[in-house]
Write a protein that binds this DNA or RNA. Structure first.
Length: 879
RNA sequence: GGGUGUGUAGCUCAGGUGGUUAGAGCGCUACGUUGACAUCGUAGAGGUCACAAGUUCGAGUCUUGUCACUCCCACCA
């Protein structure tokens, strides 16, 4: 028995527990059916579920549940990411509360603390995913720092190194001074700010009173200047090329070089060159073989190569300006709009710094990763995202993979006493190689750097399935079927998975990549903590249930567009669930029981034939849309069928049957209603797994659980639905007349149909009862030819004929005239359209014959109807 | 500067291959306690599909241009 009210909180968690405990999410490895697999984009172990996850994981769960019901062997592989920077920061923050830093503990102790933290506080998000209904196989949950996945990391690292695709280099990298580590280009965000532009001058060597004028936003970097560049095309300044100038304060002699980097239009036309602290200057330095002077410490304070050792960049900037002013070299300071790089995680200004780092030769790995997208082995959905992918991959830079952190995969690199590098999976091997190399036992020191988190994430598609071991899961589920993720992650993750997989597996990691947009607030604003417009999905689930949130995500997911969150809309889908709940209660109350030997294609009554056909139409539409990843179309089809067809019409049409006497019809309708409800539960299950399961289990002795129920294969009976469609149309028309004439809903009317076709007339005997019931009529009859239309009959055009309602003297003629005139207006407007087209000779000549014929038919019908309305108007003209 | 999208009802958005009177949810108006449901029902109002030109018998849909906005990449002189 169903409770009166739909209350998702009462059953959602319980149902999930039942699935998980019964192993319903595990693939049946004994089955020989087709495999379907998805690896979850691993959330950070520190993370909490946000609306972006809710969207991403709902879409995945829909695909997973749908494919499971198709009878495939389905694996949704879950897990979390160790999230190097994020996790280290969380634990360090906790330590800071006790006034200690990680350095007080030492590396080993600190890492132990991180593992402790993970054991106690990590993985909240996995619990939240369960609450959302995600049917992942949790027994296979993985973590990027697991033993197995770490082995995969070591193996692929060594392989890449030995293939020359990983190398160490001293390069200018993005340096996060707060964390004291290198970060990748992608972890840097550019922010626009209003800063200052400083203008000052350097004296020219040996030419008293001659200066070269410089403009910069960072005067304090002048201590790293090793040249000034001027374009050779700069008419005003090119005479200075080849001379030297004197770097003030430190009085270093530096050359003035010719380089096109110096744009004559910008600034003063002369650029100070600081090769060790600017990416462009670095290139200039290389071209002119300039020395590099590093002026910063790891924490971005100035170092011993400057007069302001120990000062931060801001203070040093102030001091530099003061000093230049003292020397009379400062000229002016202007406000200047500029873009400054910040660390994505730490929010501090990123400094380009010369350091030893490790790089992956991404341009080489990109070749294969590009090829398999170009030739369609991996397809983006929507396709347009491949442009984004191509654009980035074709311009890819070497990927800096070393991080000066503690939490992460420590690189399998050992250095010999003279710095020779030994790269092996385990220390013993490296030791053996080293001993052989040196011809004696030597002491090795291990590289302290760890790998960028995305390095291990890049292996996710195969490392989670057991690689490097040969496993049944790897054989069965690799390549995975589809990857579902946001467009913001294409570079970070999709591209890297493609490169790593093509390198190691020689096969794509996934055959399709479905890309969705961002979840925004209801006015399309990006959600952010600082704006205070974030919404916690757990609270939404608490209020409306997981099913409502999931359905919302599906219904709003149209390919390639962002999803705007809307509380009222989520409430609407909660209402939809309530509606279904009540429909199920209706079925229950009317003893609509699932009948084992019921054959929907054998039903006799027009109403039942109609709903079976409509159910099949809806099913095939949902199937098609899901196959095409058209989530919103799929969801809307189910919604429309449940509410607009089943509840609004079928249930209403079944009432006169249930309250009537015909036992045979009652029995058939009960069985049909139960069958349709089951069908609804099946096709709705991927979207709303909880309520559908709850209602499914309300029927005793089910042969299968809904989660494993078979997705229907459509056998169209091609049943004629026109009779019921006609009745529905008729009922709607009568209701509309009733409303516009302000007739009380309770008044039972007589209705006549005039000038109807033979087909329509043939429908009437069967449809009479339901029309009378739903339109609240006393009787409905054919208006015989030759009968006189009386003045107190209101009339309205219905298809090829007229609906007449005698009102026995209560007609409000003014209202009736108004209503008829409105009908007339509509007809005239349509007629104009038809006439315009048909009077156009080239339309008649060139448009397809069926289009022209249809237009003619409409015109003829409209003309006839117009005549009838005019006649009716004339009849009551003066009343 | 390079690239990518978007502009349709009061709001948020659908409208694969051009073809009836352009749809949905929410909101709004009127009526309604009809034996599943007021988290509801019935009926209704509301749109020059950003603008301009073009292709076509026919354009919300295709082409070009204009305007406005979004996002991504690059850019610290």
């Amino acid at each position: 028995m169903l409770e009166k009210n739909y209350n998702p909180k009462d059953f959602e968690e319980e149902i999930y527990k039942n699935w998980e405990e019964n192993g319903d999410f595990k693939p049946d490895m004994r089955s020989d059916s087709e495999a379907f697999s998805i690896v979850i984009p691993p959330p950070n172990v520190t993370g909490y579920l946000h609306m972006g996850h809710a969207l991403d994981d709902t879409l995945q769960d829909i695909l997973v549940r749908y494919n499971r019901m198709l009878g495939k062997k389905v694996l949704w592989q879950p897990g979390t990411d160790h999230a190097g920077i994020a996790t280290q920061m969380v634990v360090e923050r906790n330590l800071a509360k006790e006034g200690i830093t990680r350095h007080d503990l030492g590396r080993e102790k600190f890492i132990e603390m991180v593992w402790n933290w993970k054991a106690h506080s990590g993985g909240t998000i996995c619990k939240q995913l369960r609450r959302l209904g995600a049917s992942c196989d949790w027994s296979r949950e993985r973590f990027t720092m697991d033993e197995g996945l770490s082995r995969a990391v070591l193996k692929i690292f060594v392989s890449l190194y030995k293939d020359g695709l990983i190398y160490k280099a001293k390069k200018l990298v993005n340096w996060d001074p707060k964390l004291a580590t290198a970060v990748s280009d992608l972890e840097v965000v550019q922010k626009e700010i209003v800063g200052k532009m400083y203008y000052y001058k350097y004296p020219i060597e040996g030419e008293k009173g001659e200066f070269i004028h410089i403009a910069t936003t960072r005067p304090e970097t002048m201590f790293g200047d090793t040249a000034v560049a001027v374009s050779k095309d700069n008419e005003k300044l090119k005479h200075l090329i080849g001379k030297n100038c004197i770097l003030p304060i430190v009085n270093r002699i530096i050359p003035i070089v010719a380089d096109d980097h110096a744009d004559p239009e910008k600034g003063t036309g002369a650029v100070k060159i600081t090769p060790a602290h600017d990416f462009n200057d670095f290139e200039v330095g290389r071209r002119h073989n300039l020395p590099m002077i590093n002026i910063l410490n790891e924490d971005a304070t100035l170092n011993e190569n400057t007069p302001f050792e120990g000062l931060g960049t801001q203070e040093a900037r102030q001091k530099t300006i003061e000093k230049l002013e003292e020397l009379g070299l400062m000229e002016k300071i202007e406000d200047h709009q500029m873009v400054i790089p910040y660390g994505e995680r730490t929010g501090v200004v990123i400094e380009p710094l010369m350091t030893d780092q490790w790089f992956v030769d991404a341009p080489k790995l990109a070749i294969e990763a590009l090829r398999v997208v170009e030739n369609g082995q991996m397809q983006f959905v929507p396709k347009s995202y491949e442009k984004t992918y191509f654009e980035w991959m074709r311009n890819i830079q070497p990927w800096c993979i070393s991080r000066q952190l503690w939490w992460g995969h420590q690189m399998p690199i050992w250095y010999g006493p003279d710095g020779t590098i030994f790269c092996e999976e385990i220390e013993q091997q490296a030791q053996a190689k080293a001993d052989e190399h040196y011809g004696k036992k030597v002491k090795l020191t291990r590289e302290t750097d760890v790998l960028d988190t995305w390095f291990s994430s890049g292996l996710w598609a195969f490392s989670t399935l057991g690689w490097p071991d040969k496993t049944e899961f790897l054989d069965t589920f690799y390549p995975t079927s589809v990857l579902v993720t946001g467009f913001d992650i294409i570079f970070f993750w999709v591209a890297r998975m493609m490169m790593m997989s093509m390198y190691m597996m020689k096969r794509v990691p996934f055959k399709k990549c479905y890309i969705h947009g961002l979840v925004r607030d209801e006015h399309g604003q990006k959600m952010s903590k600082s704006k205070g417009n974030t919404v916690d999905p757990m609270e939404t689930i608490e209020t409306y249930g997981a099913d409502a949130l999931r359905f919302f995500m599906a219904a709003m997911e149209t390919q390639g567009r962002d999803v705007n969150l809307s509380d009222s809309r989520i409430a609407g889908y909660r209402n939809f669930a309530t509606k279904l709940w009540n429909a199920a209660r209706f079925c229950e109350m009317n003893e609509c029981k699932y009948a084992k030997d019921f054959n929907p294609y054998d039903v006799k009554s027009a109403v039942n034939k109609w709903i079976v056909e409509k159910a099949n139409q809806a099913t095939s539409e949902v199937t098609k849309n899901l196959n095409d990843y058209r989530f919103s179309d799929a969801a809307n089809t189910v919604y429309q069928f449940v509410w607009g067809t089943f509840c609004d019409w079928y249930i209403e049409l079944s009432k006169p049957i249930f309250y009537g006497e015909d036992a045979e019809q009652i029995a058939e309708t009960r069985a049909t209603a139960a069958w349709v409800l089951d069908r609804i539960l099946i096709i709705l299950h991927p979207f709303m797994p909880f309520i559908t399961t709850k209602l499914w289990d309300n029927t005793e002795n089910r042969e299968v659980k809904l989660i494993h129920a078979k997705w229907p294969e459509i056998k169209s009976a091609d049943d004629d639905t026109q009779q019921i469609d006609w009745a529905i149309d008729l009922i709607s028309n009568i209701r509309s007349m009733r409303a516009s004439m302000n007739l009380p809903a309770t008044a039972k009317l007589d209705v006549y149909l005039k000038d109807m076709s033979q087909t329509s007339i043939s429908y009437l005997p069967q449809m009479e009862k339901i029309v009378c019931s739903l339109a609240r009529l006393e009787k409905i009859e054919v208006f015989e030819n030759g009968q006189e239309i009386s003045k107190d009959m209101v009339q309205s055009v219905f298809r090829e004929g007229l609906i007449l309602i005698p009102l026995k003297g209560v007609v409000n003629f003014a209202a009736e005239r108004e209503r008829l005139n409105k009908e007339l207006d509509t007809l005239n407007r349509n007629l104009q359209g038809y006439e315009r087209k048909l009077s156009n000779a080239s339309f008649v000549e060139r448009a397809p014959a069926n289009v022209v014929a249809e237009e003619k038919r409409r015109q003829a019908e409209a003309l006839e109807n117009k005549a009838k309305i005019i006649e009716a108007l004339n009849r009551i003209k003066y009343l």
